[in-house]
Design a protein around this nucleic acid. Sequence first.
DNA 1: ATGAAAGCGCTAACAG
DNA 2: CTGTTAGCGCTTTCAT
Lengths: 333, 333
Amino acid sequence: MLTITIYDVAREANVSMATVSRVVNGNQNVKPATRQKVLAVIERLDYRPNAVARGLASKKTKTVGVIIPDISNVFYAELVRGIEDIATMYRYNIILTNSDQQEDKEVQLLSTLLSKQVDGVVMMSDEISSEMLHEMNRATVPIVLAGTVETSNSFPSVNIEYHDAAVDAVNRLIKNGHKRIAFVSGSIDSTITKLYKVSGYERALNEASIEIDTDLIVGVNNTYDDGLVAWDQLRELKDPPTAFFAGNDEIAIGLIHGAQDNGLRVPEDIEVMSFENSKLTRMVRPQLTSVVLPLYDIGAVSMRLLTKHMNKENIEENNVILPYWIEERKSVK
Amino acid sequence: MLTITIYDVAREANVSMATVSRVVNGNQNVKPATRQKVLAVIERLDYRPNAVARGLASKKTKTVGVIIPDISNVFYAELVRGIEDIATMYRYNIILTNSDQQEDKEVQLLSTLLSKQVDGVVMMSDEISSEMLHEMNRATVPIVLAGTVETSNSFPSVNIEYHDAAVDAVNRLIKNGHKRIAFVSGSIDSTITKLYKVSGYERALNEASIEIDTDLIVGVNNTYDDGLVAWDQLRELKDPPTAFFAGNDEIAIGLIHGAQDNGLRVPEDIEVMSFENSKLTRMVRPQLTSVVLPLYDIGAVSMRLLTKHMNKENIEENNVILPYWIEERKSVK
DNA sequence: ATGAAAGCGCTAACAG
DNA sequence: CTGTTAGCGCTTTCAT
């Protein structure tokens, strides 16, 4: 299994390894004739540069680390696809890791990524622990936060205006005459949910002079079943909600099915506004009206932002805010 | 940004770098006292081994490549999660790449993975082109096929008995009295679909003496919309199908909604059998009856098989067949 | 335009 | 149990 190296190519082509290195790296300081000669030998020997050796010598690996909670969740998968596409465009590969939202695992993942000498990291997390922040600050390569906020804004990031989006979403429901509007969300203690979404929900109610009932704010996990469970819990209330603002599409669908399984119609009897806009929105009846969280774009822009840092390009805006809007479908009148 | 190396640790601890290397690698041939001393210095200097240098010296990178069609598709995301979990267990990281099912891209991805010196590769593909096979044979590291068949069986693989599964699925529909059963699937020209699923479909019909009508076999893509479109196409037939065998869950849901949007009831008027059993099966009404394709397990077992090859362990079975079954829910009576 | 040589940070004999 | 010494395959000055 003798691997053929740059040295073999050099010998066969009667040039120095430096010259081979130059043609491999597209350096212009090579006479066309010798370039051809070298290229021919590379072809003949089927030479393939060893990226590990290259990484050691150049201190650049052309690979970036990605830390997300769980790739089997469409939510994050969409984000990763955005990251990957832009990474490919800039000739980077990605090492993908799942944190399952565990703080200690996040720290450890970042640590191994750094030991693997990634050129940068894109990460998404509900909540950045102080240990994680410490590890992040130790890093000598850029780290960008995708769809996650770190309150001091000391790291590059890409997000939307979650607060405004929540206000708009709830206003949409208020406009339809609802007074009893529930907010059902996962990651209820995460920075984004707590600081931005809940506050947006409350602000909209306040502005409409609707009393805030904490019974109507329910924290669950992010799955379909949680939507179902939340429905069951909420309908027990003496004065149950007539409209729901869901933290994501799966929860929204659970809520809808909960209602339908109880003989209620959506949107005639119950209205549901979601917050995600994955492809699932179209796969329910009625189709989901949802705030658009552009996950693919958040991933893509995050990766682009990361390349700018890695290349030490000029950065106009280090904390990017992407636009959002509400995609009207059939779960809200 | 001076990086601290094994050499710095050695100097500070008054030992040779070999000793530091030994403690870092858990080699037992180190006196406990010196081990403690070295560990203390590592802690103090915040030393972190450079995996790239280690990779160059040891010719092992502890990272494996993964080639799949598209991570934003739950189907593949589930597979990747299985791969990742086992990889983590064996201390490997994964470089994730998307081929979008393009042959040239697959070849190129494999090539860059190999140049990055991955210790092995897990890949999934509808169809392995001859160029790809050639590139695979060039590889000096093990490659395992997850949920994909290469007819010569010359590579390790993990699959289920697609043919038998298709026969069972269609028999289930025949048992309910259907004579007009459609097969709607994506990747219709892929090895698995063509050789195993279609043949299973035909076999079941033949055994029940039901005539095969090629109008009832429709090749589409793998999305929800394709299910909708296929429905519209099939209902135009003078003698339209009363039951459907769908290639995956999204198609199945499209078919169901197509029927429901036309005022038909599932399963009373129309029955639908799926083939995947993702979490989507529970997120429709009626919930989907489906053949269980254990994607997570296929990923996990593939990765485990890969570790066996990488460690040169003894391999009992190189072409693993996992069990399948039909999960009964409500879309089939 | 090309070559020589010094590392990059670590592993792995080998010697003692 | 510990140290010495070669590399691993490539990039990158520095000469020429």
